[in-house]
């Protein structure tokens, strides 16, 4: 018993405990960090290049102005443009000399495989988000998704949580009590 007490009183024991706690804490932090870094996409799609070519968001994510889901373009749609770009279409240029991401796209398109995109903006399935009214009211895509002309793959620009939604809804509808009642109604998103 006395030995145990001595051990506990030993300063190195206390230091060991402290080190252990620190290590466990940092391990937790690292774990949290790994869950927070942007997910790896199958293709590092350069949004910035496309946006800078004046391609509208709705050209590819065409669902956003008429339905809940914005949608993702099919690789057919990708290929519709890329197939016409002389640089890549030219049979003289072998596939292996294409930019690496385009090689991947080619692989998907030729083999008719779906591209498994990893969603960046995601709401839990008890939240029903509808793009259409937002686009119809003139909310710019950048408001939530950030300036895509400066990004390659999409990153999470906003912590998408209820406080953020409600905050914006409250501000936008400050002058219209009827609209506010609708925008702050639980049943608008949760059912």
């Amino acid at each position: 018993m006395q030995k145990v007490l001595d051990l506990i009183k030993n300063p190195s024991f206390k230091i060991a405990i402290l080190v252990f706690v620190l290590v466990a804490f940092s391990a937790g932090l690292v774990g949290i960090y790994f869950t927070q870094i942007p997910p790896e996409q199958p293709i590092l799609f350069p949004h910035n290049r496309h946006v800078n070519l004046q391609i509208q968001c709705l050209y590819c994510h065409s669902g956003a102005w008429k339905q809940a889901s914005a949608g993702l373009p099919t690789e057919q749609k990708c290929w519709a443009c890329h197939g016409q770009l002389k640089k890549y279409f030219d049979p003289v240029v072998p596939v292996s000399e294409w930019p690496i991401e385009l090689q991947k796209l080619n692989d998907y398109a030729v083999n008719n495989k779906p591209i498994k995109w990893v969603p960046v903006y995601q709401v839990p399935d008890f939240v029903h988000f509808n793009h259409r009214p937002h686009v119809a009211k003139g909310v710019a895509c950048e408001t939530c998704h950030g300036d895509m002309s400066k990004k390659t793959v999409a990153t999470l620009e906003q912590t998408v949580n209820m406080g953020w939604c409600i905050d914006c809804h409250t501000k936008k509808s400050a002058n219209d009590p009827v609209l506010q009642a609708k925008l702050l109604d639980c049943g608008t998103c949760h059912y």
Partner: peptide, 20 residues
């Protein structure tokens, strides 16, 4: 739900939207 994926149709009919 970070590890779910979303996929468009490979050859989606033109009248068919993802999520509709």
């Amino acid at each position: 739900s970070r590890y779910t994926t979303r996929e468009p149709y490979t050859k989606m009919p033109e009248y068919n939207y993802n999520g509709k």
